[in-house]
Amino acid sequence: MNQQNFPVQVAPLESCREPGPEERSMLRKVLDRVGQYCQSRSLFVLHYCTGCGAIELPPSMTSRFDLERVGMQPMVTPRQADILLITGYLSVKTLKRVILTYEQMQSPKYVMGFGSCTINGGMYWNSYATVKRLGDYIPVDTYIAGCMPRPEAIQQGFLDLIERIDGGRAVAWKDYYRNYDRYLGHQQHLFGRDWLTPTDVVGEAAHYRLAGDGTLGPHTALLDQYAGYHQAWGVPREQYAELEASS
């Protein structure tokens, strides 16, 4: 592997931290409150349906339970979605996709672990290829236990989440930015040192003032080391050719 460094631009951390409640203006507070309310009333769900639990979703969405009543709609791409719904077990391969999808979603974003598999591996606990705890890799707001949970449980989970969003308590997504190094460490442990996504979480944390003490660390340093391979943006062509040759 090549040893060249492509540093990720990070602004000084102080200016990247979220301002405390006392620093926000009155208008800001009002707008944030309105925003929170709207966020809780309008939730676009991205279903990550790899497991068997997906079968319980159609009844929740259609005429029997009609989740549109509470402003929920299914959405197609991570860019548009607010909730990432993980239905069932995750293999090591699919977890990579889940992490990419999660990172491509726009904050505030919420993850729902659906079924026992996302909590402790469930019936796949003995499998070498499945992930035991989703929460190690991405921050999860709500787990819905059961194998598999009924639509009523799903509904309850959503309502619970709505309540917490409205109250400003569903902030697990901030944890991902603040303690990115820890999540990345788990990911690297599973996928290897050269694990990379095309997204730029550290940059986002800096840009949106979401950084914390745990944003940078030994694991993000590894990112710098391997960034150039995937992100040829800004890489001089001859260097890129070298990289191509070396890979």
């Binding site: 095309p198 997204t199 730029d200 940059g203 986002e204 840009h207 949106y208 995937h230 992100q231 943006w233």
Partner: peptide, 8 residues
């Protein structure tokens, strides 16, 4: 925030 074209 501007993202990379491969972040797609």
């Amino acid at each position: 925030k501007r993202v990379h074209q491969l972040d797609n």
